[in-house]
Design a protein around this nucleic acid. Structure first.
Lengths: 190, 190
DNA sequence: CAGGTCATGTAAAGCGTTACATGATTTT
DNA sequence: AAAATCATGTAACGCTTTACATGACCTG
């Protein structure tokens, strides 16, 4: 059985205390959606495979008449998770961003200057919203030593919001530069 | 016919002067791979559809005995490209990064501290390499006013490498912080 | 003349999202 | 009483990658 990043995401979420498939998906939406989006339709089959591979235990855990399966890491699951964390090798190529906004910026030259500036402002607004979005999620993560396992979730969230803030500023500066330049050339033109 | 981001990537590349499907793929690999990866097996069928939709013209353009199809934007293609650039609406959620390294960092707590630091260093090295990678590509883009259409390609490349540099620094600072903290707590422990 | 690049395509497999389906429980 | 949430799953669809196939041209 070959494990994918999603497999380790599930193992890791179980380690952080999520028990059901549904709960894993909730946690993933709240915390890892930005760098590893996941859907329920992937989680349930994957839980089955991890169980078959002996990396997780399953037990029935009904809530009243509502059925629920509770999962737990086995020793082999713990080991597999740690081995994966250790096996990371630096890549020479950057991670793909796959952002349609960036793609549009790449071709912005096809528009007249005022519309180029509009596009840049829209892009900046997107990153500003993204920054705020993660910052809000960050605030609800407890920071006390009792929740030590939540330390890195807080770190990745901070890294995310700081990165988006940086790009936001970058685009703001770009807009100012292009606007100045336009003002100068039109003044020259008279 | 519903157009996808890939469709507009092709229209935009034709506008930048690429003529054949092969050339479009070359340009995309060099310039837009980071935020919109593309494979040849997508490009060729898509060229056919864009031709059927009347957004591009096709003409035979053989090089000696080697066959080649040359494509060109039609007026409707130009219009469609500009309309797409104008239609961008800011999103409230950030673009997904889908980076396995970040996912590992999220779960780093499962490792002992010294291995956490190793992981952070590896991640930092990945971003350093990514930064350098884009910076190299940036250097070959001409900046003279003759190549005005290459202005935004240069801008997106600079934004990319600057962002990776920012993350690199961020991770370097994180590693220093965690190392200091470890030194203090072990000193206390004695 | 062998290996790499230019050039175009097809087929299959894998992966992920969306939609569908079901039913209990909680909230408004 | 209706709507949202909890909970688990399946099916269909679409996108992307990988592999395969073919052949001309160029470089060492």
């Amino acid at each position: 059985v070959k494990l994918k990043p999603l497999s380790y995401l599930i193992l890791g979420m179980l380690r952080l205390g999520a028990t059901s498939g549904y709960a894993i998906k909730q946690l993933a939406d709240a915390a890892t959606r930005h760098f590893w989006p996941t859907s329920l339709a992937q989680v349930y089959p994957q839980l089955g495979q991890l169980h078959d591979a002996g990396l997780i235990d399953r037990r029935a855990d009904p809530q009243g008449a509502r059925a629920r399966d509770a999962y737990e890491l086995t020793d082999r699951g713990q080991t597999a998770l740690r081995a994966w964390l250790r096996s990371y090798r630096p890549t020479n190529t950057p991670p793909p961003l796959r952002d349609e906004g960036m793609l549009r910026l790449f071709f912005a030259d096809a528009l007249p200057l005022d519309e180029q500036l509009t596009l840049i402002r829209k892009l900046r607004d997107s990153f500003a919203a993204a920054e705020q979005h993660i910052r809000n999620e960050l605030e609800v993560i407890p920071h006390d030593p009792e929740h030590a396992a939540l330390r890195y979730p807080a770190i990745t969230a901070r890294l995310g919001s700081d990165s988006y803030a940086y790009i936001k500023q970058w685009l703001t500066a770009l807009e100012a530069d292009l606007r100045d330049e336009a003002a100068h050339s039109s003044a020259k033109g008279r």
